[in-house]
């Protein structure tokens, strides 16, 4: 137990150093580029004046200040995070249920495997027009698009996790008189949990990847996806950098929360990751 905490802080320290180095390099590049990069950019039908290709820290600070003060950023984060969470929760529930079923019943796996393989790598953008037609322009389409992308990942993770449950546990449970239901609840679920959870973590990241695409549907403020789309249309690079940085920070935060939860729930394991 005691050995985990220092290890975690070492990792945090390394992450801070790595991100600090990135920030420093960017600062140097922006400072050098400020006077040298072109400010007049050809955007297909016309020229756009006064574009800052590598915004300096002062202009980033100004932009961040504006987005925070106006409440745009907070609103966008809240709305987008809500959609990601809803999509990930829905997709994970469906993925876990299907994964448990296919992991336990080989015959069902034969049936679903071709479907999963077929849709595994279908990009969200390809599904977008279809989802808009089927589910409309509102929240439903956005959440379902994330759920569809995320669900496949969790399904595969859960399926594999269930298959990896050591047979000795199932045999021991069966010879102790456990019914299939009890074995599922008390043996399969806890034994598979760490791997299922790992797939949900991946799904959470994928949810944030999908949200930017999902928010192209009926684009409206506040949302991080539309903020980025809008920034691209102007174009305003400082807004893009702040938006991308915000998404990165929120993903990091979500992942850290997930890891804390993971450590808490899997205290029984020999060594926490």
């Amino acid at each position: 137990m005691a050995s985990i905490l220092p290890a975690r802080w070492t990792r945090v320290r390394r992450a801070v150093v790595a991100l600090g180095a990135l920030a420093l390099l960017y600062g140097i590049a922006a400072a050098i580029g400020a006077d040298r990069l072109p400010r007049r950019i050809w955007m297909s039908p016309h020229y756009v004046e006064d574009v800052e290709l590598l915004p300096t820290y002062p202009s980033l600070a100004y932009e961040l200040g504006f987005l925070v003060e106006s409440g745009i950023l907070a609103g966008a984060v809240a709305v987008s995070a809500g959609r990601v969470l809803a999509g990930v929760v829905l997709g994970s529930i469906i993925g876990i249920l299907l994964g448990l079923a296919t992991g336990r019943a080989t015959r069902l796996e034969y049936l679903t495997d071709p479907w999963v393989t077929f849709f595994k790598f279908t990009p969200a953008l390809a599904l977008l027009p279809l989802f808009v037609l089927w589910f409309g322009y509102d929240e439903v389409s956005k959440v379902l698009l994330i759920a569809a992308n995320v669900g496949v990942v969790v399904l595969l993770g859960t399926h594999q996790a269930v298959r990896n449950v050591p047979g000795v546990y199932l045999e021991a449970a069966a010879s102790l008189g456990a019914s299939p239901g009890l074995a599922l609840r008390k043996i399969v679920l806890p034994a598979a949990f760490p791997q299922v959870f790992a797939s949900i973590r991946v799904a959470m990241g994928l949810g944030w990847v999908t949200i930017v695409v999902a928010e192209l549907i009926n684009p409206r403020m506040p949302s991080l996806g539309y903020l980025l789309t809008l920034a691209g249309a102007y174009p305003r690079v400082s807004t893009m950098v702040v938006g991308i940085g915000t998404i990165g920070a929120v993903v990091l935060l979500f992942d850290m929360l997930a890891l804390l939860l993971h450590a808490r729930v899997t205290r029984w394991m020999g060594r926490s990751a």
């Binding site: 050591p166 000795v168 045999e171 043996i187 806890p190 949990f193 899997t266 020999g270």
Partner: peptide, 8 residues
């Protein structure tokens, strides 16, 4: 084999 349930 070791079949003690480690999560319990």
């Amino acid at each position: 084999e070791d079949a003690i349930f480690p999560w319990m």
